[in-house]
Design a protein around this nucleic acid. Sequence first.
RNA 1: CGGGGCGUAGCGCAGCCUGGUAGCGCGCCUGCCUUGGGCGCAGGAGGCCCCCGGUUCAAAUCCGGGCGCCCCGACCA
Length: 504
Amino acid sequence: MIITERGAGCQRRPARDGMADEKLPTRKEDFSEWYNQLVLRAQLADYAPVRGCMIVRPYGWALWENIQGALDRRFKATGHQNVAFPLLIPKSFIEKEKHHVEGFSPELAVVTIGGGEELAEPLILRPTSETIIGHMWSKWIQSYRDLPVLMNQWNSVVRWELRTKLFLRTLEFYWQEGHTAHATREEAAEETRQMLEVYTDFAVNEAAIPVIPGAKSEAEKFAGADITYSIEAMMGDGKALQAGTSHFLGQNFAQAFDVKYLDQNGALQHCWTTSWGLSTRFIGAIIMVHGDDQGLVLPPRLAPIQAVIVPIYKNDEEKSSVLKAAKELKAQLAKAEIRVHLDEREGFSPGWKFNDWEMRGVPVRVELGPKDVAKQAAMLARRDRPGKEGKVSASLADLPTAIGKLLEEIHQSLHDRALAFRRANTQAAASYDEFKQAVENGFAFAPWCGSGECEAKIKEETRATMRCIPLDQAAVLGREIASGGACVYCGKAAKDRAVFGRAY
RNA sequence: CGGGGCGUAGCGCAGCCUGGUAGCGCGCCUGCCUUGGGCGCAGGAGGCCCCCGGUUCAAAUCCGGGCGCCCCGACCA
């Protein structure tokens, strides 16, 4: 996708909307306020007139579209097809699965009037679509020959949250929900793990975000699931964010909605189902993992604009020669499949534009002035190293290759930096004292007996929740940690280590 | 729902205690000048002071009642 300048009929100078004069609060000073202001000033999103709702602005949506593209490719490659189920679901559906209704009742939005008339049965705005999909599957699935069913939908869902924050938790949010039905437990379990791997691969290779894939505790799992897996990431303030989930639903929904098939022996069987989702919350993860005190830092493979050209000139003569060179450069970069934007805005100083594009997280900036044009070169600045330090001169002819390489380098360095940060702020805690210390500003990786009582006590006393039992225990800290040991809370034997942390 | 903060120009705020012409910075518009890290000068536009009621000759300001938003907790992708 190429971002082009707006059409000729629309050359009005854009407002300095969002780019206030002052700097952002630093992350150290006030991480939460840093985040809020960054989202607004980078023009990713804005507050809607309804409390807890969000408007995703063009730049934020372009980022989401790139996330969608990267995921959708992976879903298709693993055999899934996209579908669209309705927003409105009969309220009775949600009540059919016991745990599901317990989990979701408190946060349902209910429609009771339609066309001015009280409805015979209230409708809910979908908080997720397991129920209505289960209902339809019971009609569509009859034989083992109909299986597996591999579906995904891109939509928005509504959950009436008490406390909201842009991207991280809003009443309505955008996501994808995948739903699959299988003949056997093994096949469904395999699908659940496969999609967790897809999310992990996406996070690492597209967003440059290192994640810990693992299993959730009973208390933290999805309402209605037998097993919930998630990918957990560490934000810049040391807190955890669940960045994607994959659920093994067993036969819970198949039984509640009568999703059955005849197997090869003529026996009637319930299906085994899965669901998995990743939401616009992931944008919050990108902001909080990579962002710095200058603003947003976007991972190159997802950035709506990968390289921005800022032309520099003093007079009309310089302007025409610089712009001519800039346009040629832009065409060259576009040809090399770099998403490039030429900032031709009048009345803004180059210095102002530098700050503006840094706020908006563009990975690479190309500065092109008369001196550069004279020697057929340009200054290259990389966003992950802000200020004058990260600048180098490069010849125009080399730029398409050089920028391509630089983008890859930035991706790698963002990932490595985030991984090093996470490891530096994760402590393998053996005692409860060490544990408490660790979750003050990061993760504790600690032996846990698996009981809900210990988990609840820990949460009550430290505000830290169980994030997951990592599937790959050695990857958490990048070295083998002895398994087993005594539960960090009760001292009983622990089978695995679990990651604990304060979470968003 | 508990605790805290705040509603005055597009944004950020002052004014309120002690009632009397509604102000400042940024942004916006016009022109000139500038442009290699957030240029400058001059002129200009822009207000249901959150809403409703009360006190008063007079309310942004005092009193009563609402509503909304943000932050911190309990619940959650």
